[in-house]
Design a protein around this nucleic acid. Structure first.
Lengths: 234, 234
DNA sequence: GACAAACGCGAGTGGTCGCTCGCATTCTGG
DNA sequence: CCAGAATGCGAGCGACCACTCGCGTTTGTC
């Protein structure tokens, strides 16, 4: 088992003459291998999506990718590593493409706009990558993914809390803020599930419904700000 | 395997002389057996609660109940039947104890009151029986439980839709009603998760937060009704 | 072309889990 | 009190799954 150092680096400290590469053991990999990895991850995404993590068998993933189980284990040390690599790539893509949704907002933007923009971005990402939802909300996910989920959860919570504290001028109790932020995130998740469960116009209607729920929940809190009475109903 | 007809009745039609009992094959069971069943179901509830359905092993359930695996299979034909019987009993108890929450409401009651009463009842039930949440929201539940969940889901949806249609006088589009009802149920589930994740005063604060979110979401829809501007904040 | 390393295969291994079977013990009706 | 049913046991069976191993094939390098 002298393979797979790239995806699952073990403890170093043995004979290593030239670490003058980029990072860690280079593990020379041909283009063919990279293609196989992408192929396997795509197959894994499909299988995870349809059956969930635990119910997904590595043999099924290999079959879906059209390779043998042995080939799969040439590139991934174990089943967990597949989910982790998949999660890492999704996380990376999300931060790259939709990172702006996490950036601090101009405190002058109305609630509707801020909520709408954030919801649109995250909904779009989740619609493009349904595996993300399966990996993040499965009850049986491996430890590493769970950590990533917690990190994302905490990040989102912090961002929402920031946004809320910019809305509530002096109502200072941070415990209230935390609860409200958690409630917002929960409502978003619930709405996301509804959105993912429908297609086309119906899906968009649910997006509007989710935005309505969030805005109506948050608007009364923004008492000190200039009200935005214009509300485009469904 | 001439046992377990009561919990898993197979196709009848064979030699049955005296069906003058109460229902189905009587399957004479001693008090000891009934006690064992209750004991096993309690153990199963605990194991399902902590590890989920699929991860729960029948041997673990038997161990938790302090009996051998063979004894477990004397009363349940298979693992699924354990979850089904547990679900049936929970469902029965819910209908018995909290069925009034599903009864039609007086159309004169304000939104806050109706929402608050329903939320309180269901939250209380779920707090008393955390297994219910685990069985209903696990992604790996067996078919029968899934059907029960769907039935409950549909019932709740129908009730919420009724309540909504009594609020919206003439805004007739039933598709909008369905979406709003689904959003309400999703918000309730999200809130329930938050509530179950906390204890004591914090838990009650989340209950209030959930009610706030639901009321604020629904209140603007009740435009034609006499408004209830008194809102007790957190 | 030759060598080595990366790639690819699929039968096989160890382990777990749902479930069974033969047998011992306890209860119930007559 | 005794025949038979209900209860109880736990080693073990078959199936499945994550993962391995030995060997054959392809690819990059000199």
């Amino acid at each position: 088992m002298p393979d797979n150092q790239e995806l699952a680096p073990d403890a170093p400290g043995s004979d290593r003459q030239e670490q003058a590469q980029e990072k860690e053991q280079p593990r020379r990999r041909q283009a063919r291998g990279e293609r196989r990895i992408a192929q396997l991850l795509e197959a894994a995404a499909h299988v995870f999506c349809t059956t969930g993590y635990t119910a997904a068998s590595t043999n099924a993933i290999a079959r879906e990718a059209g390779v043998s189980p042995g080939t799969l284990y040439q590139f991934f040390p174990n089943k967990e590593a597949i989910a982790i690599e998949l999660g890492d790539r999704l996380m990376h893509e999300m931060r790259e493409t939709y990172g702006e949704a996490l950036a601090p907002v101009d405190p002058a933007t109305p609630v509707e706009e801020a909520v709408g923009a954030a919801v649109d971005r995250f909904i779009a990402f989740n619609c493009d990558h349904p595996v993300f939802f399966a990996l993040m909300h499965g009850p049986d996910i491996p430890g590493r993914i769970s950590e990533e989920h917690d990190a994302l959860h905490a990040t989102l919570l912090a961002r929402i809390t920031d946004l809320l504290s910019s809305l509530l001028p002096a109502t200072a109790d941070p415990a209230d803020l935390t609860r409200t932020a958690r409630m917002c995130l929960g409502m978003y998740k619930a709405g996301l599930e509804l959105v993912l469960g429908h297609e086309g116009a119906e899906r968009e209607a649910y997006v509007r419904e989710l935005k309505n729920a969030l805005v109506r929940y948050l608007e009364p809190l923004a008492g000190a700000r200039l009200g935005t009475p214009a509300r485009a109903g469904a």
